[in-house]
Design a protein around this nucleic acid. Structure first.
Length: 418
DNA sequence: TCTGGGGTCCTAGGACCC
DNA sequence: TCTGGGGTCCTAGGACCC
């Protein structure tokens, strides 16, 4: 048996923890740069606000119904996520953190009343973190996902649902839209609709060979999982990332190489930080920048350049240097750039690195000491305390005007109780 | 005016081998 | 006229996830 614990409307729920006055009110959290709604309270969903709706399009609804609007506050969400994970870890020998707001629990071999157990996990999360969590338990991950969605639909389940009897599974799948099944995306839905397949149950009734042929291995796994056969592995060990990307849209379009370079230097620094945190090195540094694709009154361009480093590296200077060189090589003036990013590729373990015959060992050592000093200063005095000259003020330019305080991660933002 | 960011897995097809 | 058979590795792009 597997459990899926899914935090309800997670970002909005995090904001409400420290703003109890927002309970029962429509609330949304915006994507980076205050672009789109990415988290919505039930009240906001009821007003017709859809996932990914741009703010300017829903402005009338927001104003008319007094929707509370927040910029995203990832330090807060990350910390609340960690707290929920701490609770979950007490309920299973192995936990797979699937995303910032979801985790699978491996319950195999446990001998408990699973329905009561699911409800207990949910209640404990609520009590200790003030985050509402839906817990579904089922014989496969895909069915556990469906069970957790049932919790959100039916409050009488009290946050926990155990889905295992074949007749219950059939009943649930018969009214479960196929497009809401985990692993079935938009492209597959198009095909399925043209075949008259509308529910998860219809999908399970397709022939094995047909599914295998039309939807390949991933679709076949989903088919089996819906039929109660677990096919998707449990991955509780965190593998280092094989690629690392830091990219942003800009609040104001960029028309000067110097401005773009400064942003790219900051992206490169952040990417290198992530790389170093997972103790990896990379051999590829790619940079891209593009104009605003929604503007048909301005010329469009997409520039990118990939640099192969002479040796795998986790050195801030090497990575920023490669990124800035890439920037210069694809830069074209006369365009207004709206978004850019840095991608690190061909990632390997730092410890497995063999020094090259042609590298200067003492220079490498000095460089590593510099990078390490930057990490130490950041962790002791805060990120951005020291930075490279080409990073400018060290900030990535995007709007976040409606951001809530960093209640749990900055001493200065801790809520005061009178 | 205004439209997110960061990943993984799988497959087909090209290039290459004997 | 007729044009083998079997394999690996790599990459780009598709599809999917939150």
């Amino acid at each position: 048996m597997y459990a899926l614990a899914d935090c309800n409307n997670f970002f909005v729920s995090c904001e409400r923890v420290f703003r109890p006055d927002l309970a029962g009110r429509p609330v949304i959290v915006l994507s980076n740069n205050d672009g789109c709604a990415v988290s919505r309270s039930n009240e906001a969903k009821a007003l017709g606000i859809k996932m990914g709706d741009p703010l300017f399009k829903i402005r009338p609804i927001v104003d008319r119904y007094g929707v509370a609007v927040f910029s995203s506050n990832f330090p807060l969400y990350g910390d609340m996520s960690r707290r929920v994970q701490e609770v979950l870890a007490e309920y299973a020998p192995a936990v797979e953190v699937y995303s910032i707001d979801e985790a699978f629990l491996d319950l195999n071999g446990m001998d408990v009343d699973f329905d009561a157990y699911a409800k207990q996990i949910s209640a404990d999360c609520w009590k200790r973190t003030s985050i509402p969590v839906s817990v579904g338990i089922a014989p496969s991950k895909t069915l556990a996902k469906i069970a957790s969605k049932l919790c959100k639909k039916y409050p009488k389940l009290k946050g926990g649902c155990f889905l295992h009897r074949p007749e219950d599974i059939e009943k649930v799948l018969r009214s479960f839209p196929v497009e809401d099944v985990w692993g079935i995306g938009r492209r597959s839905v198009k095909k399925l609709v043209s075949m008259g397949i509308r529910t998860a149950w219809d999908y399970t009734q397709l022939g094995e060979l047909q599914v295998r042929k039309m939807f390949n291995l991933p679709g076949y796994r989903t088919w089996r999982e819906l039929r109660g056969v677990p096919c998707i592995g449990f991955e509780d060990v965190i593998e280092p990332k094989q690629s690392i990307c830091v990219s942003r849209s800009f609040a104001h379009e960029i028309t000067a190489l110097a401005d773009l370079s400064q942003q790219v230097a900051n992206f490169a620094y952040s990417a290198a930080e992530k790389l170093r945190r997972q103790k990896s090195v990379c051999q590829e540094v790619a940079v891209f920048a593009l104009t605003n694709r929604f503007r048909d009154d301005a010329p469009q361009t997409f520039g990118s350049h990939l640099t192969v480093l002479p040796n795998p590296s986790d050195d801030y200077r090497a990575i920023i240097g490669a990124a800035l060189g890439a920037c210069r090589s694809f830069w074209r003036s006369g365009y207004a750039y709206k978004k850019a990013g840095v991608l690190l590729g061909r990632i390997g373990q730092a410890s497995a690195q063999v020094p090259s015959l042609f590298e200067d060992a003492s220079e490498l050592e000095r460089s590593e000491r510099l990078s390490r000093a930057l990490d130490d200063i950041s962790s002791a005095y805060g990120r951005g305390t020291v930075r490279f000259g080409n990073q400018g003020d060290g900030r990535i330019r995007s709007s976040c005007e409606r951001q809530s305080p960093h209640y749990t991660t900055l001493w200065s933002d801790i809520p005061k109780v009178r």
